[in-house]
């Protein structure tokens, strides 16, 4: 990170860890067990294609019709490309497995 502009930019798309209890996931399971929740966050500026540039310009210039163009994204999203499940004991002494609840890999898609 040498230039001023680079320092100002937020971090690129990557995995972030957060320790949370299973209850905090809000999926209806009541358990005080702490798990490691991983999620994807960060900017996807570097992976923009010509598509994104063109779309952004045309949205700005009002070339495209206004109906659905606001929902068209002109930059990739930072999303998980692989997930993992968690297994835990709830507060009523029953084991549960929730599949695909935590991110394993992230990518700009």
């Amino acid at each position: 990170k040498r230039t001023k502009r680079a320092r100002k930019g937020t971090k690129p798309c990557s995995l972030t860890d957060k320790e949370v209890t299973v209850s905090q996931l809000g999926l209806g399971y009541v358990s005080d067990e702490v798990i490691l929740f991983r999620y994807c966050s960060g900017k996807c500026v570097a992976t923009r294609r010509n598509y994104d540039l063109a779309l952004a310009r045309m949205k700005g210039q009002r070339v495209l019709s206004r109906e659905n163009v606001d929902r068209a994204r002109h930059s990739p999203c930072c999303r998980p490309t692989a997930y993992e499940g968690i297994t835990f004991l709830d507060n009523h002494s029953r084991y549960h497995t929730i599949y695909e609840v935590s991110a394993l890999k992230c990518a700009c898609v």
């Binding site: 320790e19 490691l36 968690i86």
Partner: peptide, 8 residues
């Protein structure tokens, strides 16, 4: 519970 956390 702490042991479960450490394992997780």
């Amino acid at each position: 519970l702490d042991a479960a956390k450490a394992c997780n």
